[in-house]
Write a protein that binds this DNA or RNA. Structure first.
Lengths: 369, 369
DNA sequence: ACCAGCGCTTAAAGCGCTTTAAGGCTACGA
DNA sequence: TCGTAGCCTTAAAGCGCTTTAAGCGCTGGT
């Protein structure tokens, strides 16, 4: 029932305080100038009237908007986490955030336009899919920070995690637990998977396990993970409770040869890991008893009590802070050369990894609950 | 490198087209008035300059902002879905949406304030947690639509799904598959759980299965679901491959007595269902072979190939459309009496429900793959 | 006495767009 | 020929705030 006496305007506050709108404006924004008496009068008046500055008017009048525009895939939990941290970081530096969600009907281009219409001073693009050329073009006219993606576009700042290091962390963790036969479930074609795979290969090599390297085809979703379970022959794991113990046989998609079954698997991401896990558990393969599994992303799903997946975190807080920092450096400190910030991910150890069991031991058919 | 020659202003377009800003403005917004020649000239000029209206300026000048403010929990996938549909619905009616995300550091109150600062003409609150009194107070000054929550606050429009009907749909589906012993895993205290439980009880009664009613304590997350699996004695399911077949024994949290094990379970929500499912599958209980499971929310997780959970959908598209409709009715059609729209949910049948097996049959220990 | 300098306050000019009311045309009927 | 209705077009007044530059009353140095 907005039969509003229309929200109070700055003028109302000013006249009630017996000063000019100029003074009121200054006081309300905590600017130096007005004397103590004026200050108090204005603040009182504002309080009494329940005054809140009209944002559109402020934005229009102010030369600077102090607005950072963020495009995000609203259905991505990772983006959601990032957003939280972006808000916090922006807050600290006196910036505000405008969110422009990507949906079926609103692609990235349109989302960016909306942000520009709001006169955002910098664009923070979460996992942008715009082609590099377009990013570069955008960057000619505006400050743009690409987050979570390795962009080869001139002029744009990049904040991303060192995916290869992340996978290496996972491998090291597993090796520390006594595993040698560690497989990698590859992701969908693209720069991210390439980097992660590379991280895996190099880590294995560095640890003297080059021969034990095994990369199987995979993908970015649960089905890919489930398929990988089969490709890795993990489903033929000894099952004392079943009659048949089929030995691993040929015909694998492995890109590198080795006949043992892996005792640990690093998956391209959590979704693939989840599919893998699910398949294993349904088939009675014990995780982490028989096989250890590590995911990537440290997504909310990995943290679910029933999943409890060891995973590599892209440390959203750090990325968010770095991104806002990058933007404010350009806006406030006049930086003009683009930067690429590569952050070290961290491993979050949970319940799907454990020490490798002596291979001579077999499952006894009685599960620990 | 925004060394901008500053984006073109309306004035630039106008002068290039050789007309006044007034005409240009009219043309660009498709308003009647300007003649064909003027139209063309303006459109050409705008195109050549790559003109886009400055939103803040438009908003300020326009009496109406045509803005709908949405508060959402950005980490909720359900909210994310709703948002997509809200965008679409708003688009159709010529409104625009401003998103104000709730985060750790930004509660609902603050989110609403932000929206008001942008001069949103109506507030669409997704699953608001504000106390009724506060909602009512808000509604005195603004148009507010609460989505997905049963609000007893004067003046606010409510759009929600009929949760009792949703659960009833699930029960009916199961009964249609031959199930009689259908249990309900309760949710966390609150109006939603009450309604769903009620729906369950009434449906069972209506179908002549009052005696088979069984409500076990639960909760809104995976752990609650896992615990319910134990409470329902489902874990003692005959396992030919194991030595022990423990019969259901006493000490249950059941609120209603019956000694058979349920052959089907309806869970308060998908998360609880997921916990239940996970526990069952890990214990070798076949779903849907041994037990059918239905969730609630039709969340993304339910749709994952590896979960494939039969679930009740709150039909976000319909809720979104209804919510925008409610808002525009107030704004454009002058409706002033609050409405409560209760939508019928729909059941999405997936792989976790199947016909009840004859109880005399037992699992043969050989799984179909 | 006078002017410089300081501290505070404010009038007024925007910010970029919308909108209203007034003005200029043309055409047509009287 | 004049009046007037109708159609376009535009000057100008905002929208609610910020900001600049000018103003005002003091103090203090010379």
């Amino acid at each position: 029932m907005p039969s509003r006496p229309s929200r109070p305007r700055l003028e109302d506050v000013a006249s009630r305080a017996g000063v000019s709108t100029a003074s009121a404006s200054l006081v309300l924004r905590g600017r130096p100038g007005p004397g103590a008496a004026t200050r108090e009068a204005v603040l009182d008046a504002a309080r009494e009237l329940g005054y809140r500055a009209d944002r559109t008017a402020s934005l229009l009048a102010r030369r600077r908007t102090q607005l950072l525009g963020v495009t995000m895939d609203v259905s991505s939990t990772f983006h959601a986490e990032l957003l939280e941290d972006l808000q916090a970081a922006a807050d600290e530096r006196g910036y505000d955030i405008v969110v422009s969600p990507l949906t079926r009907t609103r692609d990235e281009r349109r989302a960016v336009e909306t942000l520009l219409d709001f006169r955002c001073e910098a664009l923070l693009l979460l996992g942008p899919r715009l082609p590099d050329a377009e990013l570069a073009a955008l960057a000619e006219e505006h400050h743009v920070v690409a987050i979570g993606r390795r962009a080869q576009a001139a002029g744009v700042d990049v904040v991303r995690a060192a995916d290869d290091v992340g996978v290496a962390l996972a491998v090291e963790h597993l090796v520390g637990l006594g595993h040698h036969d560690i497989a990698f479930v590859d992701g969908p074609r693209g720069p991210i998977a390439t980097l992660r795979r590379q991280g895996y290969r190099r880590a294995m090599k560095r640890l003297g396990l080059a021969d034990a390297s095994l990369v199987v085809e995979g993908g970015g979703d649960e089905e890919a993970g489930a398929a990988a379970a089969a490709a890795l022959h993990l489903l033929h794991h000894p099952q004392p409770s079943r009659g048949h113990v089929a030995p691993p046989v040929g015909g694998r998609e492995a890109t590198s040869g080795r006949s043992r079954m892996p005792s640990a698997v690093v998956a391209f991401n959590d979704r693939a890991a989840l599919g893998l896990l699910d398949r294993l558990r349904r088939e009675g393969v014990d995780v982490p008893g028989d096989v250890s599994v590590v995911g990537y992303d440290d997504s909310l799903i990995a943290r679910l009590a029933t999943v409890d997946l060891t995973s590599v975190s892209q440390i959203p807080e750090a990325m968010a802070t770095a991104a806002v920092e990058a933007a404010t450096q350009r806006l406030d400190d006049g930086r003009t050369e683009p930067v690429e910030l590569v952050l070290e991910p961290k491993l979050v150890v949970r319940g799907t990894t454990a020490a490798r069991r002596d291979t001579t031991t077999r499952r006894d058919g009685i599960r620990a609950d």
